[in-house]
């Protein structure tokens, strides 16, 4: 009976996916057409004569009525054709295949660090509520949340790269290793490991560490603070009093009884934080010259590269929607009270 209800809820969530995605496509398309930038500028530049501009406009289909443009866009989309990027001269799908994996690599590394550090900090802060430890964690997370990430990134470079010589500089890999690994997943650390190129792996890993730590610090705040908040609620529950009365050890109460109940809402927080990172940590990618989707999207936007902007936004939106759905499904699966 319960399994059937969960299945039904999951199916309803999946059914809403196409509607949400259509809405996303429509809004993205309309915003793309409404921005006060002439996309033809990206193709022919500012100096091109009127006939070249008119030809480019026709080639882009921008001389058609809006509804026709949208219909054409939908038709192409149905064939997984997101058009060609003016900037890279590649199909946008190829660009996304190239620029998304570095972002995935960075975001995943950052998320793993944020979880490994943030969750224990949050749990222990709630356990030692009001102690110096709790206050220290609050200050630490407050700084991570308040200081702009590009400032953190520049400071990290200045300290760990310039002053202490502990980290390599910007970029995904040192120039001497550029092009040495054949892309399989597009994530350099993974590809280098698959290829058995240990020097490249070491270099790629060294380059990943600093931006991942900066981004992790940025994500640490919501993870730690919300974990603390959830744990505080959990620790005030009657079942915790019962557990104490039964004489269970502190660690068992904390990790088994309290944290077991916190894990459910925490999944949602973590998935959404991960989705935010996947949107492309634009500023971190810019400061660290990380060739990810965030940088691709920003540069495309500034260059009025419409196909690239629409395509990348759509992919980001798609992942966001899917991750949200997964979070929802996970919530339903993990918590039997939710129908």
């Amino acid at each position: 009976m319960i399994a059937g209800a969960r299945l039904h809820a999951g199916a309803a969530g999946l059914a809403s996916l196409p509607v949400t995605l259509f809405g996303l496509i429509l809004v993205t398309f309309l915003i793309g057409r409404a921005v006060p930038i002439d996309p033809v500028l990206a193709v022919v530049g500012d100096h091109a004569p009127a006939d070249v501009v008119a030809r480019a406009r026709a080639e882009l289909g921008l001389d058609q009525p809006l509804i026709v443009q949208f219909w054409i866009y939908l038709r192409h989309l149905a064939a997984f054709d997101l058009g060609t990027s003016v900037m890279t001269q590649q199909p946008v799908t190829a660009d996304i295949a190239q620029y998304f994996p570095p972002t995935l690599e960075l975001a995943t590394a950052a998320m793993l660090i944020a979880l490994a550090v943030g969750v224990p900090l949050g749990v222990l802060s709630a356990w030692w509520r009001g102690s110096w430890f709790d206050h220290s964690v609050r200050i630490l997370t407050l700084v991570g949340q308040s200081v702009p990430v590009f400032v953190l990134a520049l400071l990290a470079l200045l300290v760990f790269y310039v002053k202490l010589d502990m980290a390599p500089g910007t970029g995904q890999i040192d120039v001497i290793y550029q092009g040495m690994v054949s892309p399989v997943t597009g994530m350099l650390v993974v590809d280098a490991a698959l290829d058995g190129q240990w020097d490249v792996l070491q270099d790629a890993f060294a380059h990943l560490a600093l931006p991942a730590l900066v981004l992790a610090y940025f994500s640490l705040a919501p993870v730690a603070r919300l974990t603390r908040s959830f744990m505080q609620d959990a620790l005030s529950g009657e079942y915790i009093v019962t557990a104490r009365a039964k004489g269970l050890s502190g660690a068992r109460i904390l990790w088994r009884h309290a944290f077991g109940n916190v894990a459910v809402p925490l999944v949602t927080v973590v998935v959404l934080a991960y989705a935010n990172l996947l949107q492309g940590a634009v500023l971190t990618e810019t400061v660290f010259s990380w060739p990810g989707l965030g940088q691709y999207l920003t540069v495309s936007l500034l260059n009025a590269d419409l196909n690239a902007v629409l395509g990348a936004t759509l992919v980001v939106g798609f992942f966001y929607v899917v991750l949200n759905l997964l979070a929802d499904l996970a919530y339903r699966l993990l918590d039997p009270r939710v129908r």
Binding site: I113, A116, D165, P168, G169, D174, D199, L201, Q202, D203, F205, A206, H207, A209, L213
Partner: peptide, 14 residues
């Protein structure tokens, strides 16, 4: 790198 609990990295890469 070691402190980041990522033992794969050895020497200074860059």
């Amino acid at each position: 790198m070691a402190s980041a609990a990522l033992p794969l990295v050895g020497r200074s890469a860059l």
